[in-house]
Nucleic acid binder design. Structure first.
Lengths: 200, 200
DNA sequence: ACCTGAACACCGTTCAAGT
DNA sequence: ACCTGAACACCGTTCAAGT
């Protein structure tokens, strides 16, 4: 039967979850779809575009319109939703980061818009809203990619030789990652709140 | 004559500046050093470790001990120095980001320490200092990588067909990138300052 | 319209063997 | 100690030709 874009994206997501982004290659994807590598280039211009489609797929749960609420809660809700979506796929943060950088994800563009609007309500003047939204987004993507690589690093380490009691490893996972994430996010929302007192 | 680590790093930096990170391959590096690819693996365990050494080289100017000053000025000075160092090499932000994620750069670890100390002076309790420092670092790396990719994208675009007057392109470089960077950083330092009022 | 076959021009890494 | 030669197991992308 015919190959459709959504089959390709679904299989790509499966490889991502099972083996990580390093194993998500055009050749392997083609092999698992019982197709020649060249076939993929009929449906996608190049690998970046395909990864962008996978990124958008990953972000579907994070793109639900948020219920009406306070700008602060809205930013927190959107960012928590984004982080959850990223953490629910192996290397999800790295994938979305790369797609964002390459300008290949419609979904993060949409999230950026929501954040920019919230920044406006926080009191940021229209000339700086997008910059403020980008700042928040860079934090979420960076922090989550960081957290996820630690998680995966010591998931692999746990399967290694018996864990010695070296207590204070810089590369270890913190006690409560969600709390750490919330703390960093609060720094940003506090900064946004301070904008209002400057402009009035 | 013999191959030394610093020759390898210097040549790698030259390739980076001249052709970008995509062309900084072990094989090409070896070729330009008139050596076999395998020779590099005598001096470096793998490509990540080599890239980490290049990252540290790029960050040398950003690691100067800052003169004694207000925590806010110190954070701004360190971050501006970091950004300048990243922008002065093609794909510098991407390189350092990757090396930081891989835990291969001593230099960013050091900068992280300086930022954590400044966060402490800002009033962040010791349990959250590193998290605060990481938040600032994620911002600087993300924002600079973003800025740099736009810069390079439209440096390439300028060499293309006559630029049409499409005014509002999302991928265009903003009026004053440094001002945008400073704005995002101010959001964070304002957030840090707000910490103090919470703890006392 | 959609896909195969086959090629082009590469990768990172390893390791016996040489000097 | 330091490096070569040669291999292993891959990559992304293109494109004439088939159906």
């Amino acid at each position: 039967m015919q190959l459709h874009k959504r089959d390709v994206v679904a299989k790509a997501a499966a490889i991502l979850d099972g083996y990580g982004i390093a194993d998500l290659t055009m050749r392997r994807l083609a092999r698992e779809l019982d197709v020649t590598p060249g076939a993929l280039y009929w449906h996608f211009a190049n690998k970046q575009e395909l990864l962008g489609a996978v990124a958008d797929h990953v972000l579907v749960p994070a793109c639900a319109e948020p219920a009406p609420m306070d700008w602060r809660d809205r930013i927190e809700t959107v960012c928590r939703g984004l982080r959850d979506a990223l953490l629910s796929h192996t290397d999800g943060a790295e994938l979305v980061s790369a797609s964002f950088a390459a300008g290949q994800s419609r979904a993060v563009e949409q999230i950026l818009g929501v954040l920019a609007e919230a920044a406006g309500e926080a009191g940021v003047d229209s000339a700086h809203r997008v910059q403020a939204a980008r700042t928040v987004l860079h934090y979420v993507l960076g922090a989550t990619a960081d957290e996820q690589s630690r998680l995966q690093w010591d998931a692999a380490g746990a399967a290694g030789p018996a864990t010695l009691d070296w207590s204070a490893d810089l590369r270890s996972v913190p006690a409560d990652p969600s709390a750490g994430f919330a703390f960093g996010l609060r720094l940003l929302t506090d900064g946004l709140a301070a904008q209002r007192t400057l402009s009035v």
